[in-house]
């Protein structure tokens, strides 16, 4: 892609990231940080390409380390985010507990 197109992509993606996060309630900050940590695990595809084109032993060694680390970022990020989000339930979903907002005495 040409430089200027790349620059446009960069700018628009930056605004997108800002907008998507700006409406997040505090209760989701930690899972969201974890989720965005997972998203940059996309570095895995870059590491795969780098290792896939490596020729010398040095390039291959660094490439393997890169793929190992990137896979760890992607999978680890997914697992912990999923574990955290899986626990978020509303009181409606729990069913049997009425009167949580109304203190009828």
């Amino acid at each position: 892609m040409t430089g200027i197109v790349a620059l446009y992509i960069f700018m628009l993606a930056a605004f997108t990231g800002y907008e998507v996060i700006s409406r997040v309630p505090v209760i989701l900050h930690t899972p969201l940080m974890s989720g965005s940590n997972f998203v940059h695990g996309i570095v895995l595809v870059g590491a795969m390409v780098a290792l896939g084109g490596a020729h010398t032993p040095l390039e291959k060694t660094i490439g393997i380390v890169g793929v190992l680390l990137a896979a760890g970022n992607a999978v680890g990020g997914y697992v912990v985010t999923e574990r955290m989000l899986e626990m978020f339930k509303s009181s409606g979903a729990r069913g049997a507990k009425p009167g949580s907002s109304k203190g009828a005495h």
């Binding site: 930056a14 990231g17 969201l32 940590n37």
Partner: peptide, 8 residues
């Protein structure tokens, strides 16, 4: 993906 995470 990298830029979105960077700004967010």
């Amino acid at each position: 993906a990298g830029t979105v995470v960077g700004s967010a």
